[in-house]
Write a protein that binds this DNA or RNA. Structure first.
Lengths: 197, 197
DNA sequence: ATGCTTACAAATAACAAAATATGTAAGTTG
DNA sequence: CAACTTACATATTTTGTTATTTGTAAGCAT
């Protein structure tokens, strides 16, 4: 039984919250486990009952952002109000682009932490990328089934993801904040769709 | 009159050559002005007669790479053997992609130095980017004039450059060496062309 | 006068010692 | 026995010192 009366999951959550708060204030480089522990009223060693190491705690922060993102994309995939399969793909890219842009602008320190994790090939990043590929292939397959475009679904998915990399790659998004580039994204996509008919 | 019998330009050239040689051997972080000077048989202070500061000498190295690149692209723009305006655009992107990829693979230390310069917004980088935009707009205009595609030349140029960023942005190219991605580039371009008809 | 050297000041990098942080193991507590 | 603390070993960061490098100024040589 936990001393604090909280479940293991709740304690983990609280640790992540405190980590996020400190990352926002001081940047991820300056977050120390002893500070987090102090915030929580425990010793730093106690954190090791919940996280394998410091990296695991930091990863959990980025993983949370990635999961939010995945959920938003999942919603687009399932959104019944979108009738046209190509509109759905466009929406998917817009959601992805906006989420990244919003994060880099409004939560820059957490975005930096995420970027730092992404550099090194972490499992949760690989899973996120794999999921995006799967989703896009599925969305493209629907567009093919509906007769809107022709070709091999996974090839086309790769084409679309590659041709829009400037709008969702962490490094690229961070390079051009401030500008509204949604129209350009839509132009590129609609030209590609037309070409794939 | 110079003591060595060389013109100012020749001395600059020699300084750049020695800088490149040392960058290749030890990486740009470890290149010292005193080493370059020793290689040339002069004192380090003498280098300041030719370059404003260390950064100017380093920039000259990257500028040389960028100029080579610009020349290659210029050749594609003027190549009389290419009849089709869209083939010319594809060739232009392939030359750009190959040049970057070749450099990152065969001359990685110089590429790193170039990348380092590019990060900070240097004038010669801005000029290179401006030139690429101008060239692409011109190539697109030719395709429009030939009735191959329709639309606004500078808008389409921006679309093409953006949709292919994964194949020519310094950071993106460095991320995926080894893979042959030329076919994917061609697929993306030809779909875009078809969509812009 | 140009291109260099010498001599020097200012900025950076390298290094070693001390301080702090991370991670582990043994033991305590509810 | 799960969640923690204490105590400690190891790794990393910080700090202060020294050495090297960068950049400048004054003057020498052709």
């Amino acid at each position: 039984m936990p001393k604090t009366g909280l479940t293991q999951e709740q304690i983990k959550e609280r640790a992540i919250e405190h980590t996020i708060a400190r990352m926002r204030k001081f940047g991820y480089e300056k977050v120390r486990l002893s500070d987090i522990a102090k915030d929580m009223g425990i010793t730093h060693a106690a954190l090791y009952s919940h996280f394998a190491d410091k990296a695991a705690l930091f990863d959990a922060v980025s993983e949370r952002f990635v999961c939010d993102l995945d959920k938003q994309l999942e919603q687009v995939c399932e959104d019944k109000t979108i009738k046209n399969a190509l509109n759905r793909i466009t929406k998917w890219f817009l959601v992805l682009h906006r989420a990244k842009k919003e994060k880099v602008q409004n939560d820059p320190e957490i975005y930096r932490a995420f970027n730092f994790c992404s550099q090194i090939e972490k499992d949760f990043v690989k899973r996120h990328i794999a999921l995006m590929n799967t989703q896009m292939t599925m969305l493209v397959q629907r567009a093919i089934d509906d007769g809107l475009i022709k070709g091999n679904a996974s090839t086309i998915a790769l084409m679309l993801l590659t041709a829009t990399i400037d709008f969702h790659h962490p490094l690229m998004v961070a390079e051009r904040t401030g500008e509204n580039r949604e129209q350009l994204l839509e132009q590129i996509l609609s030209s590609l769709y037309k070409g794939l008919k």
